[in-house]
Each structure stands twice: as structure tokens, then as C-alpha cells.
Design a protein around this nucleic acid. Sequence first.
DNA 1: CATTGCTCAGTAACCGGTTACTCACGTGGA
DNA 2: TCCACGTGAGTAACCGGTTACTGAGCAATG
Lengths: 344, 344
Amino acid sequence: MTTPNRVTIRDVARRAGVSVATVSRVLGGDYPVLAATRAKVMRAVRELDYVPNAHARNLSAARPGAIAIVVNSVAVPYYALIAQAVEEQAAQEGRLSLICTTGGDTGRELSIVQLLREQRAEAVILVGSVIVDEEYRKRMTEYAHALAAAGSRLVLCGRPPLGEGAPALVVGFDNTGGAHAVTAHLLSAGHRRILYLGLRPGHTTSDSRVAGYRSALAEYGVAADPSLEVEAEFNREAGYAAMNRRLAAGPPDFTAIFAGNDLVAAGAIQSLREHGLRVPEDMSIVGYDDVPPAQDLGLTTVHLPHDELGRAAVRLALGRMGGNPLTLGTHIVVRDSVRPLGPR
Amino acid sequence: MTTPNRVTIRDVARRAGVSVATVSRVLGGDYPVLAATRAKVMRAVRELDYVPNAHARNLSAARPGAIAIVVNSVAVPYYALIAQAVEEQAAQEGRLSLICTTGGDTGRELSIVQLLREQRAEAVILVGSVIVDEEYRKRMTEYAHALAAAGSRLVLCGRPPLGEGAPALVVGFDNTGGAHAVTAHLLSAGHRRILYLGLRPGHTTSDSRVAGYRSALAEYGVAADPSLEVEAEFNREAGYAAMNRRLAAGPPDFTAIFAGNDLVAAGAIQSLREHGLRVPEDMSIVGYDDVPPAQDLGLTTVHLPHDELGRAAVRLALGRMGGNPLTLGTHIVVRDSVRPLGPR
DNA sequence: CATTGCTCAGTAACCGGTTACTCACGTGGA
DNA sequence: TCCACGTGAGTAACCGGTTACTGAGCAATG
């Protein structure tokens, strides 16, 4: 107990009365070994409780590496669903996958990527939207080249493609299309003053949702009103705080809300409730992502095929799929948070 | 690009005009090296973009291993919160941690544990409640011994301690206490017919919550009624289905519900809503865990210190803490799902 | 009976690091 | 001037596997 079990392949070989090569062959693979010999080896393995050392194995022979998925936080449903889907798919492919979290910290992200390079991970799946600036682009391009040089694939999920030549695969959701559709849903219900809650300039996910929102407005001939686009990070607290501020400033000058994602919607709904406004009677609201809170809130939202994304990411990571960059379609899920307005 | 970058320490040594030992020393540690030599080496490392091979490193010198956390599914908030807490704490301790998921499949759990043994993980944190039977006990005891023999620690979270001598550390929540408290909360609000939704014989978490429920009833002199204890797995769908069945059988013969966890409560609330029963006006309900759906539902529930559990698990895993088995306290979070009943 | 060819097992080199041991060299004291 | 000593660097063994190469033993063939 005090001395860790350091049973090596040589111990097994000695016990079984064979050579290390034979043991390795019995354990390893397809090399022909007499049934009797195999039995002797297996018995020795069992008796000694031999566990091959993955590091040694990996060192001598390049084996399929792990698939790593790097997310912000596993406590955010959006990431959790994707991570789960990746794990499922990887398991189906018989691969080890591991989830790493950065907490949104660039420094931690860097050290995780470095660590995955050292581990010779086969693929790194980076998930999540980010502020895309020059510094980001530079960092990602570095990752991409470094990982490619080490023989690993880099898959970006829900992030814009890198520049030409950067060896990164990309898969994401159709944010603009979904945002357009859900905004149109509000418009066709008669809403004309729709608050977009979740502005984040430079943040690609938000930017493309705003784009869909604006294009839908334009399509219905509604002039965009900048005062109806308010900033909020994509979490519950930000939605709550932003809505509180807006309602504190006076009675709402809008009849519906398009929240940047479901968490923002959840926060906004709490704020509305605390201000005595009911959903959907007094205020319509839609979200985005279709993550767990949406169902409990009866929130009309845009469903994202998280499973599909996870599957695609793994298959891209394993080089089983072309078609890059890949955009996955979305669809509206109508629940109970939108109330039709009579035409004025 | 086609040939993976196989820059080794010898390449670096050659380029820097020094020996491999010197390179290793510059990179590795505290051995004295002339500043000029160090500079030469660092430059060569940079120029060649050398990345040390973690496997080789691990093979020659035993280094601190990874901390692995094994959960059912990261898409279940309870697990996600704990996993997140473990990751945070591990990061603070400067350790690599990785999350693995089993999907509740015993076979997959086994192969993950095996794989972690092969990887020489430093510690394995197994989270989540399970059906504890003879087979389970045997399996866990095997894991415990195997991991211990390999020099790894095994930490069980939210599971009962193994038998004497099995080298496993244990930390969990006070389920009986929390269940007692939250049931007492309902009782003191005047409720006498309280449905327990989430019976799962043999399932330790549920069993201890039932125990708390019953002891609170006894304390208030209310006779336990077996027809008020109904089975349901600990997820949303089960809660929904069980409640549907119950309501289909006739009008409710209870005034309050104690759901086995918040997900069950969420499902039950949906069912109630669909049957035209409002919370809390027509039906009081409490949950357990205080995971995200609870806040959105305004659910009175029992808060579990997930963060604390994660921290404790890591510290136990690193041998930084005694006091085993460790039970963490809980407290009620009162929201808006319980309505006082006048004394009859 | 000699030769060829096939099956199965062993020997030893190698994967890419770390580190015990050895040694060259410059300095200060006798 | 000679020797002891401290400093910084090199050589080579080793970690625990895999596998190319070699070879023993035996059946089939000529």
C-alpha cells in the first residue's frame, strides 16, 4: 500500500515465463500468439493486477490521442449541452474525451492549450463566443499553427473562421437566421417596439443575432431605434440588472423583448415579475438557445441543435467530415411567452 | 505541416550547442545554469517551437498527476455545479483537472476508471448518487484498492462510505437534515398531507431524504401515509410523468409536495400547470439541491454548498484534509412556492 | 534426406524525456 | 607552485512500453 504498485510488463513476462514482447503482443493486438501462451500471460496479468502505463505506451507508439473540449464553464447550460454531446459522440467513436474549463480566463486558456499540446491531444475543440479583436485573432492563429504542427486538429465551435491559411475547422449555429425568425415571430404577432436585450459590440454571437433582429425589422418596414438596443452580457444577472435599470427609468416603451439568450431572458423575467409585469400578459419575451431554463419559464425561443454540433465537432476533429465552415440550422420553439397584439 | 512537428530535446540541444541534460535543466528546474547558457537554450526552444512531450516526462519522472472528476452527465445541473467547483479549486491548486462522463453506464464508468489508472491520475473523484447494492459495493471496493495500489486517491462525493479498510475518502451533503428542515417548513406552514415525490428504494440520496421527511412528520405527530410516497427518478421527465399519473387518478389528496430534487419539482410544476393548478395558490411545493431551475421557478428548496463540496473533494484528493467521512451542512432557501394553510 | 516456408517467440533498439555520476575548469589557500 | 574545492556542463542509464529483426522448430515438398 505504501509502495505504489509498480508492476511492469517485465514482471508479467517473468511470472508468465515468456518475453516482454510476447506480453506486449498478447495485450496489444493482432500478432499471432498460441492460445496456451496467451492464457499464461493473461493469468499473470490478473494475478499481478498489471495495468499498462499509458505514458510509456504513448511514448513508444503513437496511439489515438484524446479529444479535448475546452469551454468557459460547465455550469453554463449552453456549454454543458455541447460538452455533453461531444462526450457522447466521442464515446461512440471509442475515444477518450476530456472537458477542460477556462473560466473565461485567457491565461488559463493558454495554459490549457499548452498542456494539451504537451499531452499530444489528437484534437482540441474550442467552444464559445468571444470578443473577436486583433489580439484574439492573433492568439487563435498561433494556437492553430502550433496544434497543427503537433499533428492535432483545432475545431472552433460558435466562433468565426480564422483568416486564410490558419488550419482550424469551424462549426457553428445560424445565429442571424434564428434571430431573424424569432424577431419576425414577434413582428407577425403585431409587436413593433421590440427591445433587444444583450448588445455586446465585438461579440460575434451577439452581433449576428443583432443583425438578424435588424434585418427582420427592416423586412417589416420598422425603423431601427438605437434606444431599443441595450447592452447586457449573456448571463442571468446581466439580464436582471439591465431590465431593472430600464424599468427604473420609467414605464416600458416597448411591448416585447428579444433577449440575447435564455439566461438573459430568465433574468429579465425575474425583473419584470418584481416590477409587477406579467409574461406574456403585460410583456412578451423571447430568448435564444433553448437551454433548460427556457422550458421552465415557458419561454418561446430558438432551438439550437447542440447534439448535432457536438457530433459534427467530433467528426471534424477526427477528420471524418468535410464542409468547412459548417453552419447548423435552428428553429423556433413556441411556448407561452408571446402574446399577439391586435393590429393598430 | 504534413509531418508532425517532432522536435525533441536533442534537437534543441544540438541547436543550442549544449547537451540534452542542460536543456532539461533549463526547462525543468532548480539546477544551476549559467545565464548565458540558459539564454542560448531558451532561444533554441523558441526558434524550434519545442514542446516537451508530457508522456516522456511522465515516464521518466513521476510528476503530479491529473485530478479526474467522474460524473454522470455534465448536462445535469447538480453535477455541473460540482464539476465546476472541482475545476476551480484544482486550478487554484495549480493542478490539471479533467471531467469525464459516464452517462450513468456502469461499463463506461469501469473503462474510465481503468483509463485513469493507466494515465496514472493522481486522484479520482466519483460523484453522484447510485443504487447501492452488493454488486456496487464490490465494484467500488475493487476500484478503491486498484487505485490505491497505483498510488491514486479515490474520493466519493455524495455516496455512502465503503466498508472498513476500503481506501476511499468520502464527502457528501446532509440529506436527512435538509429534508427534515424543508418538511418541517411545510408542516409549520400548516400542511399535513405532504406528497413525497422521488422514492427510489436503495438509492442512498433519496433514501436519506425520505428519512428526513418521515422524521419531520413524526416530530409533528403526523402519521406516515405510504400512499403519499411515490416513486420517481431524479429528473424532470420522471417528475412530470409521476405527477401526471397522480393527477389523472383523481383530484389531489395532498396540499403540498416535497420533490426529491429541483428537477423533479420542475417536472411536477409543469404537470400541475397543465392540470390548471397554480403554485403556490393551489399547491405548495418544495425541492432540493437549489440548482438553476429553482430560481426561475421561485421554488423554495434546500441549498447545497456545491462549491464547498468541490473544494473539499479536491483537498481530500490531495491529502490536504482529514476528517473523513465529511458531511456538509445545508440550509433552506425560501422563495415563493409555499403557501401557509390556516390551522384546521 | 535436404530444403523451403510458415508459425510463434525472443533480443534489443528505440520513443523522449530525467538525473546520478563524472569531469573540466577556474579560484583561493597553503 | 600545488592541491582542494565549487561550479557548471556532459555522458549514459533508466522510466515502461512497442516492434524490427532474428531465429528455433516443425510440416510440407522435391
